[in-house]
C-alpha cells in the first residue's frame, strides 16, 4: 500500500503541471481557505491562525484541534480538550436520540408489515 496521490478528480491525461499544482494547493488548504459568508449582524469567533469565522466559540476551539495542532499554544490545547469533552457529552445525548429514532423506525415498519400481511 503506497502513499495516495492527491486526487484531482480528473482522468484527463493532458492537464498541465500548472493546473495540477493548483489543484494540489487547493486541496492542501481545503478547509483553511474555504469560502464563508457571515451575516451582517453576527459577531463571529475567528480562528487566530486562518481567520475562518465560526458562529460559536466552541466550534472555533474544535477547529483549532482539527487543523492547527502543529502551531497551537498550551492554553488553546486545554480549551480544545474541554470543548472536545463537551461535544462528546452532547454527542452521547444525540446518539441516544438516534437509537430512539432507529427503534421507532424499525418497529413502525415491522408493525405496518404485520398489519398489512394479516
Amino acid at each position: 500500500m503506497s502513499q495516495k496521490p492527491i486526487p484531482n478528480g480528473s482522468t484527463e491525461t493532458d492537464r498541465s503541471t500548472e493546473t495540477r499544482a493548483r489543484d494540489q494547493r487547493a486541496n492542501d488548504g481545503a478547509n483553511e481557505r474555504v469560502a464563508t459568508v457571515v451575516p451582517p449582524d453576527a459577531s463571529p469567533a475567528r480562528c487566530p491562525y486562518c481567520g475562518r469565522p465560526f458562529p460559536t466559540e466552541q466550534l472555533c476551539t474544535l477547529h483549532l484541534g482539527e487543523r492547527h495542532r502543529s502551531e497551537w499554544t498550551e492554553e488553546e490545547r486545554e480549551r480544545y480538550e474541554s470543548a472536545y469533552d463537551t461535544e462528546t457529552n452532547e454527542l452521547f445525548i444525540f446518539h441516544l436520540k438516534v437509537i430512539g429514532a432507529l427503534v421507532v423506525t424499525f418497529f413502525s415498519f415491522t408493525y405496518t408489515y404485520v398489519f398489512v400481511w394479516s
Partner: peptide, 25 residues
C-alpha cells in the same frame, strides 16, 4: 468518479468505490 479504479496524473490505482467523490476541488 464512482469507480474503484482511478487515474491520478499518469498513475492508475485501486481505491474504495466512491472515495474519489469525497475529496478534491
Amino acid at each position: 468518479r464512482v469507480a474503484p479504479f482511478q487515474r491520478v496524473a499518469s498513475r492508475i490505482g485501486l481505491t474504495v468505490p466512491g472515495s474519489a467523490l469525497t475529496g478534491g476541488n
